[in-house]
Nucleic acid binder design. Structure first.
Lengths: 249, 249
DNA sequence: CCTTGACATTAACGTTACGTCAGGGTTTAT
DNA sequence: ATAAACCCTGACGTAACGTTAATGTCAAGG
């Protein structure tokens, strides 16, 4: 017979944990003394080890409770289910990692930017850094072309282009009340498309990808959010409509 | 000015969430009416979007609170830290997935086992299934040799070997009180090593790997736990001592 | 026998980020 | 005027214990 402390040390948990398991009826002591002391036997140790095995797998306690002493088949099903949830969790974590990474890159870019006193949002370095990843996300050739084109511009020209870009987005915000499928919004999208020619000439599919990228890429998203919190989303909608109309023609 | 519901719908959260953020001082309303109603402005929407961005990355609220309106450099550090914790989480989940998978395999094996009425723990099927993974964990050639050897034995011989194996483990349990470095325990390890010859002849490093495998592989672990909850661990210790002594000679 | 230290008990609050009533005002539309 | 829809403030519930707090028990030594 073991006392709480003894058992807890053998199993590598705290006495409090045993109290808790007793409270919720997951692991009752084999005996209880007149003094109220809990006493556990060998079989309790085995049970506790089973419990801890499932705990390591992140099963919640009441799941474990239902699982213990069940037939293998049920356990099997539970494990399969659990496996899927673990898989989903991993996918999610993977995504989060990418996002964090992107954001880190973004902030680093923004830092260099402000150091160099460039106008906010799309510094040259940022463009380059972005290009590296963009090559994987989008089409490598077009991205490289975009970069070549951009670099060829003079500094003044660059600023003019950026300013025009900002204007486009401001226009976009202005027509938001009209709705993404309004004539006004569609006109701005048209303008935006022409503006893109400074970089490269996207086809309809790439236009969609770009609008989606504005939402999904945190560096873009952050810049758009600065202008208007709904801008990125609105553009996605508007571009979707635009492309839909163009294609149906 | 937006009411709670309006803002909540724009941002995709519940009003309760806004109440909560107000309570903890993470996002206060821009104004509060005489009736006690909360009213939020555009800037609150921006802030909320920021908050939700961090929330998506699984930052706890008080972290976000500290982070908001901080200089980029601090945010960068926080993100780097967070990235590491995400990485760790992913490693862990990866490990759990492997374990769950192993366990599922183990249970399936146990089922076939009992169907075929073989003695518990190490059925032939189980051996084979195990071999597949063992080839990746250990050395493929030796594992294959082990399998060839094992298959060559008659059923009676197999049972005899298994029985001897059980005896070895019982002996091991018997000497546990003496300690892993006791002469008695070391003698049993010696015996165990000879016993392994029925399968193959491990060198010292492989001996260690085996003992570790007893602890890390859930199918082995479960069988060992049936005999004694501390057996696997004790064997690891004893074998470590054994190998240490042999090597120093 | 008494004290001391190590151990045991129960009770109850703290943690995280809200969900979910409950009870009761306010605004808006009909 | 009245109902629908919305607002408010509590306050409990969640998961799995950690952490005091107040108090009882046991074994050993003086």
């Amino acid at each position: 017979m073991f006392t709480v402390k003894q058992l807890s040390q053998m199993a590598g948990v705290t006495p409090r944990t045993l109290h808790h398991y007793d409270d919720i009826g997951l692991l009752k002591p084999s005996q209880v003394g007149d003094n109220g002391y809990r006493y556990y036997g060998e079989e309790a140790l085995l049970k506790l080890q089973q419990i801890m095995f499932y705990r390591e797998l992140d099963f919640p306690l009441d799941e474990i409770k239902k699982l213990m002493g069940r037939r293998d088949f049920d356990v099997l099903k539970a494990l399969e289910t659990h496996k899927e949830s673990l898989s989903r969790q991993m996918e999610r974590t993977k995504r989060l990692l990418v996002t964090v990474d992107n954001t880190i890159q973004y902030i680093k870019g923004e830092n260099t930017m402000s150091e160099k006193g460039l106008f906010e949002g799309f510094s040259e370095e940022e463009q380059e850094k972005y290009a590296l990843e963009a090559e994987q996300l989008y089409d490598p050739e077009t991205v490289r072309e975009s970069n070549r084109k951009w670099k060829a511009y003079s500094a003044a020209k660059k600023e003019a282009i950026m300013a025009e870009g900002k204007q486009v987005y401001q226009d976009m915000i202005a027509v938001m009340p009209k709705g993404a499928d309004s004539a006004e919004a569609q006109a701005v999208v048209e303008h935006w498309r022409k503006h893109m020619d400074y970089f490269w000439t996207p086809n309809l599919g790439q236009l969609l990808d770009l609008a989606n990228g504005y939402n999904d890429d945190p560096r873009f998203k952050a810049n758009f959010d600065k202008m208007h919190p709904k801008l990125a989303e609105f553009m996605r909608e508007a571009v979707k409509v635009y492309v839909g109309k163009k294609r149906s023609k």
